[in-house]
């Protein structure tokens, strides 16, 4: 926190507050994705047949590869935090860069998945299954875009040399969000591609 400019009695520096705030925010996001899954599961359980036009099954392997990519991205972020703790700023920047590129690949592959499925006739209007598939993955992708912007900010901060091993609050917070999105994706992968 930059605190209150000019005034002598500054906001008391509380290192824990940002983490608490992030925990509450993540709780809220959990409720959001939880409700989305709730809506999905109710509609899925009530569905008479789960019609996926033109598809015998979802492209399981493709999605599996994508899952590995986002996990790898998360792992790179974890490594970045470790390298930062070891005061290796260059290594930190490299790892954050990898995180970003892997995240971008995930997003591009998601777009590829959508194109692939649209080709097969699974569209938003084709049925409840398609609509749910696109809204779940779409909502997640929107958050991935937000996460990528945050990761890019960390990257720029690192390049500018603003980040140092003692002041890593923003790095950690963005990290939690990024890992959270990976976890949500794994849940989505299970729900959409394995349990179906």
């Amino acid at each position: 926190m930059s605190g209150i400019h000019g005034y002598t009695s500054d906001v008391r520096k509380d290192g824990f507050a940002p983490y608490l705030g992030m925990a509450i925010a993540l709780g809220a996001w959990t409720m959001l994705f939880g409700s989305v899954f709730f809506v999905y599961s109710v509609l899925r359980i009530q569905a008479v047949d789960w019609y996926l036009p033109g598809l015998l099954e979802m492209p399981f392997k493709y999605a599996l590869v994508n899952t590995f990519i986002i996990l790898l991205s998360s792992w790179m972020y974890y490594k970045a935090v470790k390298t930062l703790r070891a005061a290796d700023i260059q290594g930190f920047i490299r790892n954050i860069g990898r995180t970003f590129i892997l995240g971008l690949i995930f997003l591009v592959m998601q777009a590829g998945l959508w194109f692939m499925l649209t080709e097969h006739g699974l569209t938003v209007q084709s049925g409840i299954a398609g609509a749910l598939f696109y809204s779940l993955t779409g909502l997640h992708a929107l958050h991935i875009i937000g996460g990528l912007i945050a990761v890019a900010c960390i990257f720029i901060k690192g390049r500018k040399g603003i980040i140092n091993p003692e002041e890593d609050v923003s790095v950690n917070l963005v990290g939690y969000f990024w890992h959270f999105l990976s976890v949500v994706w794994i849940a989505m992968f299970f729900v959409l591609f394995i349990i179906r």
Partner: peptide, 30 residues
């Protein structure tokens, strides 16, 4: 917010998560 996301899709993309009965063109809404 989750409910509103779905309601937005209904109004913008014509999904039918919450539509059933005779007016529904897509099955399975509630």
């Amino acid at each position: 917010a989750a409910g509103l996301v779905f309601l937005l899709l209904e109004n913008v993309f014509g999904t039918q998560f919450f539509v059933a009965g005779n007016k529904a063109t897509i099955e399975g809404g509630d």
